[in-house]
């Protein structure tokens, strides 16, 4: 009960964001918007959460959002959870020791994590070919993903702006709320977003 009282708002707000962005993503992607022009809304949410609210939030939101991704379109269960967990962590670790978090840096983080995500996908495709006799060269995979990745980063950056606004003005914590008892502010852990 005390847990719900303490974290009720976070649970509710994060649930709404994860579910609505996931549903929105799948409702549009491939149906109304071509896949290559569709921003990865859930990845952006994870990165912005990691950047704004620290590694714990980034990690947990990453795992939950990744679970939904795996459930919907994943070849296996767990890969999306792992990738998104590290996306959330990476976003929070970027600003270690601690540059005050601001929107411009968060946008740069979205671009950087999107790029890393694309590179990881290429590496995974290279390391784990689906047919044992059909191995693709790393150069070919990079060339194949190059233009698509640039476009993806661009649309992700554009889509990050409204998500940042939403999380800032209708986020999981009340504006100006200062967490107490968090011992590691500045480590990217629970450093609070103050713009």
């Amino acid at each position: 009960m005390r847990f719900l009282k303490k974290h009720g708002r976070q649970i509710l707000v994060y649930s709404i964001y994860i579910i609505s962005l996931t549903v929105f993503q799948f409702a549009l992607s491939g149906w109304l918007v071509p896949i290559s022009y569709m921003p990865d809304l859930v990845l952006i949410l994870v990165v912005v959460c990691g950047s704004f609210f620290g590694s714990d939030d980034g990690m947990i939101i990453g795992i939950l959002a990744g679970f939904l991704r795996d459930m919907m379109v994943g070849r296996v269960l767990g890969l999306g959870m792992l990738l998104f967990m590290f996306a959330g962590l990476t976003a929070s670790i970027f600003l270690k020791n601690s540059i005050r978090r601001n929107p411009l840096l968060t946008i740069i983080q979205v671009a950087a994590v999107s790029l890393i995500y694309e590179i990881v996908i290429v590496i995974l495709t290279f390391l784990f070919p689906m047919l044992p006799d059909q191995v693709y060269s790393f150069d070919m995979l990079i060339n194949l993903r190059y233009s698509d990745a640039l476009r993806k980063i661009l649309v992700n950056v554009v889509a990050a702006v409204p998500i940042m606004f939403l999380l800032h003005y209708a986020g999981p914590y009340r504006r100006g709320q200062q967490r107490t008892g968090m011992e590691d502010e500045g480590e990217g852990g629970h450093a609070w977003h103050k713009i």
């Binding site: 993503q25 799948f26 992607s29 491939g30 149906w31 896949i35 569709m38 990865d40 991704r69 919907m72 379109v73 994943g74 070849r75 890969l79 999306g80 996908i121 995974l124 495709t125 993903r145």
Partner: peptide, 14 residues
């Protein structure tokens, strides 16, 4: 069909 693919490694449909 409930969902379409979302890119490499997330490319099956439900």
């Amino acid at each position: 069909i409930l969902t379409r693919e979302l890119g490499t490694w997330f490319d099956v449909f439900k």
